[in-house]
Design a protein around this nucleic acid. Structure first.
Lengths: 228, 228
DNA sequence: CGCGGCTTTGATGTTCATCAAGTAAAGTGG
DNA sequence: CCACTTTACTTGATGAACATCAAAGCCGCG
C-alpha cells in the first residue's frame, strides 16, 4: 500500500479526475509515481515511446522541438494543472515534442494503459480529459497566432505580460528562461530580444536586475502588445 | 424516417463512428442534416454559439480568424475526413475561429448533445473522437511550427507541396484560394507570394496558367522547402 | 582568479513589407 | 452581349524591420 497516498486532496482531482470515485482515486494513487526534475532536465524526449500519462504537480516546463537546422522552437511554457502531459498521448505512440523543466518540477506519472482503461470505462472522466486536452491545444494555437501577428516589440511585450499575468500573477518575477529561450519562443533573434528589453528599461516600462524583472507600467505594455 | 440514410457506407464511419452499432448509426443518420455550401460561404463564424457537431463530407475548407487590425490569419486548409468540425467543440461553447468553404462543400451536421451523449456512453467512440481531434490539433501545430521556421521561398515551396501531395495528390491542380489567402496562410505579404511564384515559374520549377498550377520539378521544391 | 557561457551594444547587410502603377480577369447592370 | 466597375494579380522601386556578426562586459563556477 502506498502510504503517502494524498491524491484525494490533489488539486488535479478537480480538473481531470473529478469524475472518479474514492476507490478509483486510491487505485490511481497506488499506480502513480512522483518524479522530481531539476531545472534543465528533460522530462520527455522527442521520438521517445509514450508509456505513461504525466502531469505537472509543481514547477514550470517548456514544450519544444528541434528543427532540422538544429535550433530550438519553444512551443509553450506552462505551469502546473494547466499542463497535462504531452497532448498527443492518444494520437501517437511516440512523443512529437520534448518537454523539459525550466524550474525545479515535480511530475506525477501514471501508466498510460491504466488511464486508457479509465477513459473507456468512465464517460465523465473521458469528457473531462478531452476538454482539458482541447483547452491546452487551443491555448497553444491561439498563442502562436497572437505572436505571429505581432512585430518585435509587441512580441516581447506579449511574453512579459504572459509571465506576469498568466504564469506568476505578480508584477515582480524571476525569468525562468534565458534570453535565447525567449527568442526561440516568440520567433526572433536573441540580440533583438535583449535590445527590446533594454528599450523597455530605458523607457521606464520595466526594471531589470539580472534575471529578476519588475513590470513598472503594465498599461503601456498592454498597449504595445496590442498595437504590435 | 430519413429515406436517404446512407451513413452505413459513409467513409466517415471508419474514422470516428467505427465503434457504433447499426442501430446507433441509423439513429445518427436520422439526426443528421446535410448542408451544401458554395465556394466562399461561411460555415461557422467566430464567436457564434456551437450547437452542432459538423464534419466535412466533400469539398475543401479553411479555418481562419480575423486579427484586431482587421486582416485574416489562415490557420489551416483541410479536406474531407481529415476535418472534424471545429476542434474546440468540447472545450468552449462558442467558435473561436471561423470556417469557410474554399471549394463547394458538403457538411454533415449532427446535434452536439447527441454526440456528447454518445461520447459519455460509448468509450470506444470517445477514444476514436479524442484521437481524431488530437490528430487535427497536432497537424495544425506542427504545420505552424514548420512554416514559422522557414524563409519566404521555403514557405511558398512548402505550401505548394502541401497542395500537391496532401490535398490533391496530383502534380496538376487548381489553386482553390487567392494569392492573398496563401499569404495569410504562410504569414507573408501578397506581393511576395506572387513574386516567389514568378521566380519558381522563371526557374522552371512550376508552370502557372491562371489558377492552375503544375509542379514540374518536385525534388527541387522539396529541397527548397527543406533548406528554407 | 581565470575560464566559459550568457548578456549587452553597435555596426552592417539582408530580407521582407509597403507603396505605387499598371494589367488582367471577373462580376454587374443596362 | 457589351461597356463599366471592381477585384485580383503582377512587377519594380524604396525603405523599414530585422538577423547576423563582432567585440566587449558580466557573472557564476571550478
Amino acid at each position: 500500500m502506498n502510504s503517502n497516498c494524498i491524491c484525494e486532496n490533489c488539486e488535479f482531482r478537480d480538473i481531470v479526475f473529478a469524475y472518479l470515485d474514492e476507490a478509483t482515486v486510491r487505485e490511481l494513487c497506488n499506480n502513480k509515481e512522483e518524479q522530481a526534475f531539476r531545472k534543465g532536465e528533460i522530462i520527455n524526449h522527442e521520438g521517445e515511446k509514450i508509456t505513461s500519462f504525466k502531469y505537472l504537480k509543481s514547477g514550470l516546463v517548456k514544450l519544444y522541438r528541434r528543427t532540422p537546422s538544429g535550433d530550438e522552437q519553444v512551443i509553450t511554457i506552462t505551469k502546473p494543472f494547466e499542463f497535462v502531459s504531452n497532448m498527443n498521448i492518444f494520437s501517437e505512440d511516440r512523443y512529437r515534442y520534448s518537454v523539459s523543466a525550466v524550474e525545479d518540477s515535480v511530475v506525477c506519472t501514471v501508466d498510460l494503459d491504466f488511464i486508457k482503461a479509465l477513459f473507456l470505462k468512465n464517460g465523465g472522466f473521458a469528457m473531462g480529459l478531452l476538454t482539458k486536452i482541447s483547452k491546452i491545444n487551443d491555448k497553444i494555437i491561439s498563442q502562436t497566432l497572437d505572436i505571429r501577428q505581432k512585430n518585435l516589440i509587441g512580441r516581447v511585450a506579449f511574453i512579459l505580460l504572459y509571465f506576469t499575468k498568466d504564469i506568476y500573477n505578480s508584477r515582480v518575477f524571476d525569468l525562468p528562461v534565458s534570453r535565447k529561450e525567449i527568442a526561440d519562443y516568440i520567433g526572433m533573434s536573441t540580440a533583438n530580444v535583449i535590445r527590446t528589453l533594454s528599450d523597455f528599461k530605458r523607457d521606464g516600462i520595466i526594471r531589470v536586475f539580472g534575471k529578476t524583472i519588475e513590470i513598472v507600467d503594465i498599461e503601456k505594455l498592454e498597449s504595445i502588445s496590442k498595437r504590435g
